[in-house]
Design a protein around this nucleic acid. Structure first.
Lengths: 359, 359
DNA sequence: TTGTACGCGTTATCAT
DNA sequence: ATGATAACGCGTACAA
């Protein structure tokens, strides 16, 4: 056996660097965390030694001593929706700039999963949490508050929410888009939405549609409402179902762009003209929407901005220290993007739909 | 001042639970980590006390004592591409089942970013790493190996790669899809790809196209090759540019489905028939591809399976212990999905393209 | 079965 | 400016 290191298996520790640089372990720590407090010559020596043996402070020990983990968590339904992927991407970027690591949970619209994931995150010592939506298990937010962990609810912004939230008013947004169709002259309108159960955003959207319809004395007929998974395929089958009913809608409002893309594709496949025979609206303004033929009328949501604001708010909480009460967050303003998929209904259709009122 | 707890700010620790349950701190730990080693009655008492004060083992302390962090890292280019989002989602699920937390890095096709992210992950004590692609900074993999951290390269599978990888042979896959077009009778073929710089997968794909063309004595003419960001818009502008050249291609091969979707939409917008006037192929089989009109011929990649396999491999490394050399990983087989966007070229077009050979 | 005591790797306080 | 040393919160030999 030669003299060379028998098993360098174990990663180097601060003491090893200290020995190599012939300084104390405290100096090693300082050289990394407050370089200005150590003499340049020594600092160089330490840094060189560290680089030579590939040492870097181990986060676990560091977190313990510092009492800061520099970890925050993001809790979203799924990465399969471009909307949440964009939010997470923006948050990650914002946090990375401050040396904070983002922990991700995809709960797949399952409340228990979301709860468990949050507990795991708390155990990991997350210093803050961003959570999509507020329709969660009743014990979720209390479990976070009990630990005094700051949090935000994203993608939603009820005026009277008990939680700090960064997002927009889903209900108001759907009032806007519904009025757009009403102003064009539509009176019989179909609606395709995601499951409302356990999804506060979708419920709010549906309420918004009802609000706007009620203003004109109209309502949603049961046969004109389809509720199911947000997928292009569900959009397709739903529009087919809705168009088979009487009175036949001249427009369809979709709960998001995936559904609307499906509705648009299927309507065209059925030989219908869009918007001539049927107007279609979406929500979110995902990448594909403006590429469709005709391009989709939808509400644009700046999801990267939501991510940035959520991160900014949480960073304020962390850096502002405990005393300062978090500043209030203004809602984002979704903007109606009028594109080719909506227009006035054909004359005959309007007449036949004149008695669309339902309640 | 009443007698109630002055400042319960600090989260409870194991000692607090121990005191409440009137046991030692060791028993608290055991009650959570090896329940069978503690008497049922005591166990209940401990668990109850813990639940009452909302205690759970703090990961940092636990990691330090155990010398295991139960964290692994995933390094991908971006979440904006459905392909990587699916991989990450699958990995996260697989790891979560084993109580392992997934740390995510999106390096945005920036090698330095990838390197820095990996260093940060190593500092966090990741026990394993999954990394998309192998075209990284030359010091990336050595820095991982130096720490004896097991890793896999995903989304790629060169037969002679020095790294364990889970993916498919990009070159072979593009040979297949190119031959598909050649067999249909196409001889003048345009190519639209992502940037090859710093992206081994794309370079391999381009090589695959060249391989298949060369088999028939053909090549890619410079004016028929567009390289740029993978986006629907770049697909659109590229197909327009390519179709303005002579000889005019009868088919276009795209480096991924986003580009192909753009090419398809633009070709139709230009009034061309697809596949009548132009055949188009994609790659990945993203969700929108089969929805297009005509649906896109593409190669199907099971990205969730890639994620699962990568996770499975890394779990084997972790649980198998140090001695066992990791088992070899077979490549996945992408499958050609023939849909409506490809067909034989029109007779006239074939004739005019007879001299497509270039070298 | 339960308790004692030490170690995990780093940071921070306090001398020097 | 630098060094010694006590936390930080938990797991686990080892002893009882």
């Amino acid at each position: 056996m030669s003299e060379r290191e028998p098993k360098p298996k174990r990663p180097p520790r601060a003491v090893d660097v200290a020995a190599a640089a012939e300084v104390s372990i405290a100096t090693v720590s300082r050289a990394f965390n407050s370089p200005e407090k150590v003499a340049p010559a020594i600092r160089e020596r330490v840094l060189a030694a560290a680089k030579a043996m590939g040492w870097m402070p181990h986060a676990a020990g560091s977190a313990l001593a510092r009492r800061r983990t520099s970890i925050v968590g993001a809790v979203i339904p799924t990465l399969d929706n471009e909307v949440f992927a964009a939010q997470v991407g923006a948050m990650q970027t914002a946090f990375a700039e401050r040396g904070i690591t983002l922990l991700l949970s995809c709960f797949n619209y399952n409340r228990d999963q979301a709860f468990d994931d949050v507990q795991a995150m708390l155990a990991r010592g997350v210093e803050a949490l961003a959570i999509v939506g507020e329709a969660h298990r009743p014990d979720l937010f209390p479990s976070i508050q009990a630990r005094h962990v700051p949090y935000v609810v994203t993608y939603s912004h009820r005026p009277d929410s008990p939680h700090p939230c960064v997002g927009f008013d889903n209900r108001q947004a759907f009032r806007t888009i519904t009025r757009h169709l009403l102003d064009l002259g539509h009176e019989v309108i179909g609606v395709i939405v995601q499951p409302t159960a356990g999804n506060d955003r979708v419920a709010a959207r549906l309420d918004g549609v009802r609000d706007a319809l009620a203003e004109r004395g109209l309502g949603i007929r049961p046969q004109h409402l389809c509720e199911g998974e947000w997928s292009i395929d569900f959009g397709r089958q739903s529009v087919r179902a809705i168009l088979a009913t009487e009175p036949r809608p001249t427009a369809v409002i979709c709960g998001n762009d995936y559904l609307a893309v499906g509705a648009l594709l299927e309507a065209r496949a059925m030989g219908l003209a869009v918007p001539g025979d049927l107007s279609i609206t979406g929500f979110d303004d995902i990448a594909i929407s403006r590429q469709m033929d005709p391009p989709l009328t939808t509400m644009h949501i700046d999801n990267r901005e939501i991510g940035r604001r959520a991160a900014g708010y949480l960073l304020d909480c962390l850096e502002g220290g405990t005393p300062s009460p978090p500043p209030p967050l203004p809602p984002l303003e979704p903007t109606l993007i009028r594109r080719g998929s909506t227009a006035a209904p054909a004359a005959g259709d309007v007449a036949s739909g004149g008695i669309a009122g339902q309640g």
